[in-house]
Design a protein around this nucleic acid. Sequence first.
RNA 1: CGGGGUGUAGCGCAGCCCGGUAGCGCGCUUCGUUCGGGACGAAGAGGUCGGAGGUUCAAAUCCUCUCACCCCGACCA
Length: 479
Amino acid sequence: MPVVSKGVTKQSEDFSKWYTDVVKQAKLADYGPVKGTMVIRPYGYAIWENFQSILNQMFKDTGHVNAYFPMFIPEHFLQKEAEHVEGFAPEVAVVTHAGGKKLDEALVVRPTSETIIWHMYKKWISSYRDLPLLINQWANVVRWEMRTRLFLRTTEFLWQEGHTAHATEKEAQEETLTMLEVYRRFAEEYMAMPVITGKKTESEKFAGAVSTYSIEAMMRDTKALQAGTSHNLGQNFAKAFEVTFQNKENKEEFVYATSWGVSTRLVGGLIMSHGDDKGLILPPKVAPYQVVIIPIFRNNTKELVMDRVNELVADMRQAEIRVHVDDDEKASPGFKFNEWEMRGVPMRVELGPKDIEKGQAVVVIRHSGAKHFIQLADLVKFLSDQVVTVQDELFQRALDFREENTHTVDNWEDFKDVLEHKGGFIKAYWNGSAEVEEKIKNETKATIRCIPFDQPAESGKCVYTGEESSQLVIFAKAY
RNA sequence: CGGGGUGUAGCGCAGCCCGGUAGCGCGCUUCGUUCGGGACGAAGAGGUCGGAGGUUCAAAUCCUCUCACCCCGACCA
């Protein structure tokens, strides 16, 4: 027999390769024919759909409604906000020809929708009574990035973008932080992915924003992933698009804005937060299948086993457990065990004639490998409990991992040493200078991920200059 | 845009240096035996060798041009 590679590359060998192997072998996504594009396959899309339905409810619970704006934007719209155009111009795709002829004005394929949305908001807002306007859209956007990676950075990606308009600066700031908190809860409670919330530095903020906030997660190679952002846009877009309203005092004023978004990048974050050398590990709350049943039978025991399996499936569905039965007779049980472990299903139930004789089933937990023999009568209850337990354990495990790989340093030598030999997040004081931030980036490739909300009471010394500084920030190499 | 690589069956690759009948593994189809940690046997199907041009009696192989994708870097809510 020739040596055939089975499974995925080990994380310790080549994390990047591991990631690509998992995405492809677990059938989450595939490369599209155009550079940087991605086909999201049904199993990957099912994860995204779970994200969508949970987030959508959270948006509605915070007062937002959905709408849809066109993907084509007149080129001059983008130029109305100076910082915005500077930030996005290099990466927009532009349509110059359509309908068989050259267009009078080229059309930009949206890299984000602020401009077209604020063009419309101008028509819709005239009084304080029209505010706040709280709209979200689920859409695709296109950014012509030079380097792409499946889910993490693709030429076209799916996301949601919230765009809100407010009468006061205070309200806009509250909205910005409310949505960041929605993202934090989603990441931690559903994706089991611990995140650090904080503010972006001036150089890292969104093009056109007054301030940007983000949630930052640590991947299993200890690199950082910006998993969601929320921007306070101040009056920048209102001024660019002349969106004013009359306040209660009958005075005309520019509207205050926010925007916030998360994308299919979150799927990449999910993969890299929990996976191991066997492949994907999915938290139960967002897994397409929470349980996979592997029936084990021969011809003469098929009916016996499948009857029992069908009963169990009905009971599990009753209990709202997402269950899949792999009754493919072409593949052996051993093959299926490996296959579904690689695809990250949180729990596996094995049921064969021997089990039925004993009135039990074998349950194996994906992330721990723990094996349980459970009486059939107790099975649904056990699995329901495990949905919660596994979810908690995955979060705790990811949190422990992040803490183990977060280092506090107070001088430049240690900073370089830790970054080179240990990696991970570095907590250090920073004097607030963009110049210093830039130097650190150039010398080490580490960037300031955020200025965490969670700040110590006392000040410290800037890790680069030694100056007394009040801000403790998170440095890391990032995706 | 710079550096490196790869285009040959659905996927992964060999063949190219040294021109002469296009091959291997996996997958796929059919049948049978299997089935509790990646089963086995037998019989099959499947190819404009990325594209264009050139050299030659003859090109996957040599030459020229070209296109695409991947990796590293620069760049990047």
